[in-house]
Nucleic acid binder design. Sequence first.
DNA 1: CAATCTGTGTACCGAATGGTACACTCGCGT
DNA 2: ACGCGAGTGTACCATTCGGTACACAGATTG
Lengths: 188, 188
Amino acid sequence: MDNRAKILSCALQLFATRGYDAVGVQEIVAAVGIAKPTLYHFFGSKEGVLQALLTEHFAEQYERVKQAAVYRGDLPLTLNQIATAYFQYAGDHRQFYRMQLSMWFGPANSTAYKAVSRLNEKQHQLLEDLFARASKDHGNLRGRQRAYAATFLGMINTYIGLSLNGYADLSDELVQQAVHQFMHGIFS
Amino acid sequence: MDNRAKILSCALQLFATRGYDAVGVQEIVAAVGIAKPTLYHFFGSKEGVLQALLTEHFAEQYERVKQAAVYRGDLPLTLNQIATAYFQYAGDHRQFYRMQLSMWFGPANSTAYKAVSRLNEKQHQLLEDLFARASKDHGNLRGRQRAYAATFLGMINTYIGLSLNGYADLSDELVQQAVHQFMHGIFS
DNA sequence: CAATCTGTGTACCGAATGGTACACTCGCGT
DNA sequence: ACGCGAGTGTACCATTCGGTACACAGATTG
């Protein structure tokens, strides 16, 4: 593993466990075992490290969810696939998801929140489009796609958060139940 | 309003919008219009400000929820009352709830998370006890009180988070629906 | 061999950090 | 009138912050 990768790895761990603002550049390079200019050579700034971390990890996550989100007339099935994709990704990259989650719920004017907001927007858009497409088969959603997308994503992230803190495990049954619950909430 | 109250008020606003770690003592006292030793006179440290903020605001929130959580044999009704209490409190103290939420989802080793964790534990215990008591009437929960408490609290916080970001409004119907959904999830 | 480019360490920068020593003012009880 | 304690401002502390100038090593390329 070269120094660039080592920096990203150590930074991810530190950001995830202590928070972006609480971790200094000094601390990162000390953890890696290099000097500061090396970090600045690769990433230009502390925020550059964060950006690289987010874009490189998020690409895979987005691709997985995107493939799960193809709509073929069965909304519950699609939501099932999406939830499964999220749960699997979160399970495979616990640290990254933890960081992403903390930034998503973090203060709206923080550097970290601004950095993840564009990623959130992409995820949100994906879901919103799905609900819009599904509305042809499930009756008019009366502009509620946006709220549904937010609620669904919020629910998924809640379960992942619970799992990361040991309150739940992201089993297939949980996916089933969660989606069932969600659909039940929409059409009632 | 005396300086002590002013400090708490300004600190709350700054912490809620930019995050505990990102805000310096300097910045707080500048916003209040006082000098640093005044802050240190009242609170002893930056963390002391946070602690005072949390304990003083949380007391009211806890009292409200506690009164809503008296169980009289009707679990859905009680959950309805609890959710309503949370939603009302969050609506009345948006800034504080925002801060609390960001700390709850924040990195587990951050100063902020440690500060709120004991408050969360109290809320969690309240709900866990409720589910344990209700299990006499609703069949054995087989040790799932803990998971149910976490899920219910997670759901409430998700909705509050959505509301704070403008994706939902915390109406009575939403409470009804959310509790209904939650109960439906338990017994299915 | 010389020129170059990527990567890395030493040593440093100014600014900001959390925190404090100390002198002062003011209202209150005596 | 007095002392005392709460509250507050000035000026400062050591440390750490994010960031950089620069020298140099080593591999690549002419």
